[in-house]
């Protein structure tokens, strides 16, 4: 038990003194993760119903998912919407973050707060608002409408990530570039952007995930052949519970976790 007597930080605390913290932290982590992980074994069950722990193992629900044209179409829709949301929200968020950061205008803080309200307002309110507005202009059940609504949710994330990247960046570099003969746009693309590129990629992945994981707006706004994976899953849970859901969940967890780990890795490169 030598390890318990080693100092845990620059202070005099040893790992032994901190044991209680480690225990609490472990419990908290388990509580956070177990409900997510529990679907994984359930997805490999042979049973007709969701069952934990499964009595027999099989891959049948994965075949069920990959062989169903309904699920596949929904998956393609989700990936399409996620990608388009990413392509729309990333440049928008980067531009807004840059403009507000550089301007230094008194109103820019206020404007920033205003632009990130979609993160604070309950999504259900946005969904209801979007649904009725789209009803007027005929955007319900369209990919374009869903992408717009998802971009509203994703842009604030992009703004937050990019703003914090700009805080660690010396804007004088752009000034120098301009004094050396670069136009403002050129200075941004040649000097600033390469230095915040990892944050831009991170924010783009987060924008994709925001859309890919989103349920509430999708339930209201998407439908028919343009229904997303999450909408179908929600409907399937309500109507008939079979382990296909667990199989899809497992795949989604893997995709999301991979993307999140990727963002963590990428942002650590930038330091």
């Amino acid at each position: 038990m030598n390890w318990l007597k080693k100092s845990a930080s620059d202070t005099q605390l040893t790992h032994g003194d901190r044991l209680w913290l480690y225990i609490i932290a472990t419990i908290v982590m388990l509580l956070l993760v177990i409900p997510t992980l529990i679907v994984m074994p359930m997805s490999f069950s042979d049973s007709q119903y969701l069952e934990f722990p499964p009595s027999n193992w099989s891959m049948r629900w994965y075949y069920e998912y990959f062989e169903s044209s309904k699920w596949m179409r929904a998956t393609v829709t989700s990936i399409q919407v996620g990608t388009l949301t990413m392509l729309l929200a990333t440049p928008m968020g980067v531009m807004a973050a840059y403009a507000l950061f550089v301007s230094g205008h008194r109103a820019s803080k206020l404007l920033f707060a205003f632009l990130i309200t979609p993160m604070i307002v309950p999504v259900i309110l946005i969904a209801i608002g979007v649904f009725y507005s789209y009803g007027r202009v005929g955007l319900n059940n369209t990919i374009f409408g869903l992408v717009l609504a998802h971009a509203v949710l994703a842009a604030p994330l992009v703004m937050i990530v990019i703003t914090s990247a700009l805080r660690n960046y010396d804007l004088n570099q752009e000034r120098v570039a301009r004094s050396l003969g670069a136009t403002r746009i050129k200075a941004f693309f040649v000097i600033t952007l390469p230095q915040i590129k990892f944050s831009v990629v991170t924010s783009a992945l987060l924008a994709f995930l925001t859309s890919f994981d989103e349920v509430i707006i999708s339930i209201f706004v998407s439908g028919g052949s343009n229904a997303t994976l999450t909408k179908h899953m929600f409907a399937a849970l309500r109507d008939f519970i079979d382990p296909t859901i667990a199989a899809i969940s497992t795949i989604m967890i893997l995709v999301s976790t991979t993307l999140l780990l990727a963002t963590q890795y990428i942002s650590s490169r930038e330091k």
């Binding site: 010396d170 004088n172 000034r175």
Partner: peptide, 14 residues
């Protein structure tokens, strides 16, 4: 600035 043709040195080197 980019048309003024002045060399510039900042405190932060930049």
């Amino acid at each position: 600035p980019h048309k003024r043709d002045v060399g510039m040195v900042f405190q932060s080197y930049a």
